[in-house]
């Protein structure tokens, strides 16, 4: 295997939210297989700047797979071909010299494009605002060990809580549904004693907001689970459905 790659990139360029976008084709040469995907884009951007062309805009920050900033549909797959991997953790050794790579932004009505590959994911924040919290003011807490939490529940809640809010689930879903995202937060709190007092209100409010933001519905295709870099499973969606039914049927 050679240590460097020559690649053709087909990248979505869009100057502003209202401007029409188009694909542009770029060539990159001598890309080290040790580079991350974003470092490859850095190299391309440096090249574009030196040629007087504006660099490609893409969201990124921590570059260690935890902040959820990076996105990208890479050859039609959210965060590229690797499972449980964000784009920033995807490395070029995954590609072969001569490959053509198609790079698109997340596409969903609820995630409008800001520029090039950058989209507006504030709909997620608004869903969280609707109910993704425990209503407890600072200073009200009892001792951390006053309420015991069985390890298996704590572990499950943790697994749900590891969602990084990147939006890959929406991007990968054929319906652009945000069910996996919502279900992860609803599950975390449904599994913990701290989440019980607002259990019903939370699920109702978050689902209502999710619908209002224009995300699609779930058709149990499970593509979100396969695309999720944090390994959130569709067990959470089943739990969300269960929580929703429970909230519907129970009285206050």
């Amino acid at each position: 295997m050679s240590d460097t790659l020559n690649l053709t990139l087909k990248v979505w360029r869009q100057a502003s939210p209202s401007a029409p976008g188009e694909f542009k084709t770029y060539k990159v040469y001598d890309i080290s297989t040790h580079m991350s995907f974003l470092e490859m884009l850095d190299v391309l951007n440096e090249d574009l700047i030196s040629k007087g062309e504006e660099p490609i805009a893409f969201d990124h920050d921590c570059r260690e797979g935890i902040c959820g900033s990076c996105s990208l549909m890479i050859n039609g797959q959210a965060h590229g071909p690797d499972r449980t991997t964000t784009t920033c953790q995807l490395h070029m050794r995954r590609f072969r010299s001569g490959d053509m790579i198609v790079i698109e932004p997340w596409r969903a009505r609820a995630f409008p494009v800001i520029r090039d590959l950058v989209v507006d994911r504030s709909a997620f924040d608004r869903i969280m605002t609707a109910g993704g919290y425990v209503s407890v003011n600072t200073g009200n807490a009892v001792d951390g060990n006053a309420v015991l939490v069985p390890k298996q529940n704590a572990d499950k809640a943790f697994a749900s809580a590891t969602c990084i809010g990147c939006g890959a689930c929406v991007a990968a879903c054929k319906n652009a549904s945000a069910m996996l995202f919502v279900s992860a937060k609803v599950s975390q709190f449904a599994l913990l004693p701290q989440g019980q007092p607002e259990r019903s209100q939370r699920v109702e409010a978050m689902v209502a907001k999710m619908d209002e933001e224009g995300f699609g519905g779930c058709t149990n295709t499970n593509e979100c689970e396969a695309a999720c870099p944090a390994g959130i499973t569709v067990d959470n969606i089943a739990r969300l459905n269960r929580e929703y039914i429970r909230a519907t049927l129970t009285a206050e």
């Binding site: 797959q77 071909p81 969903a108 699609g216 519905g217």
Partner: peptide, 22 residues
């Protein structure tokens, strides 16, 4: 009804799509 609503949730289609499922 849900099919139309779901289709409307992605007004611009991807140029390329591949499943990540096994």
């Amino acid at each position: 009804r849900t099919s139309f609503a779901n289709a409307a949730a992605r007004p611009i289609a991807y140029a390329m799509r591949q499943s990540k499922q096994d």
